[in-house]
Simulated scan of single mutants.
Amino acid sequence: MGDGFLSMFEVSVSFEQSHLFFPRIITWALVLMLGVILIKHRNALLPGLKRAGEAVLGKSEEFHWTRFFGTLTLTTAYFYLMYVVGGIFPNTGYGFLFMSVPFIFCLSLLYVDQKTWKNLAIIAATAVIAPLLVWFMLAHLFGITLP
């Protein structure tokens, strides 16, 4: 348009960064709401934060170190492997599907108290059926791209 007054009406779109516009707005809105919640309800939250700190520092007998670090390890491996497998089968959602089944199975085994045949059968069925349903609905019914 020019260098004068009308140049402020020019619109340029950086397609390398345009997909990050709304996630940035949503992220800052969520951070702002979290701040408001923390300030407004600080008196109710402080005792819970104190107990959580004691648990992590080893002062609580109820803390399950295996479950805590197992969850962190499984979740990290899940997201990494979902990306790797998704690269092998691009734009199909197979990374999500193939990695969700073992993730749900292992995470369920980590948290189940009694490992009976009935519980293992329920865990196995859930680990297969739930990701299949979610994958089918998101990828095929709604057309959402999955890794």
Rank of each mutant, 00 (worst) to 15 (best):
F5D: 14
L6N: 14
L6V: 15
L6S: 15
M8L: 14
F9V: 13
E10C: 07
V11F: 14
F15E: 15
S18Y: 15
P23L: 08
R24F: 15
I25V: 15
I26E: 10
L30H: 01
L30M: 14
V31W: 04
V31H: 02
L32I: 11
M33F: 14
V36A: 14
V36Q: 12
I37G: 03
I39Q: 10
I39L: 12
I39R: 11
H41Q: 11
N43W: 05
A44S: 13
A44G: 09
A44K: 13
L46H: 05
L46E: 03
P47I: 05
A52V: 12
G53Q: 03
V56E: 01
L57Q: 12
G58Q: 07
G58W: 04
S60N: 08
S60K: 05
E62H: 14
F63G: 01
H64K: 14
T66I: 15
T66N: 10
R67A: 11
F68G: 09
F69L: 10
F69H: 06
F69W: 12
T73G: 12
T75P: 05
T75Q: 08
T76E: 00
F79V: 15
V85N: 02
V85T: 04
G87Y: 06
G87C: 10
G87E: 11
N91S: 13
G95Y: 03
F96N: 01
L97F: 02
F98T: 01
F98N: 00
P102G: 04
F103L: 12
F103W: 07
C106H: 01
L109T: 02
L109P: 02
D113W: 05
Q114R: 13
K115P: 04
W117G: 15
K118I: 11
K118S: 11
N119W: 06
A121M: 12
I122A: 13
T126Q: 08
T126M: 13
V128K: 00
I129S: 07
P131A: 06
L133Q: 03
L133W: 04
F136Q: 04
L138R: 06
L138V: 12
A139H: 10
L141M: 11
L141H: 05
I144W: 00
T145M: 12
L146H: 01
P147T: 05
P147M: 04
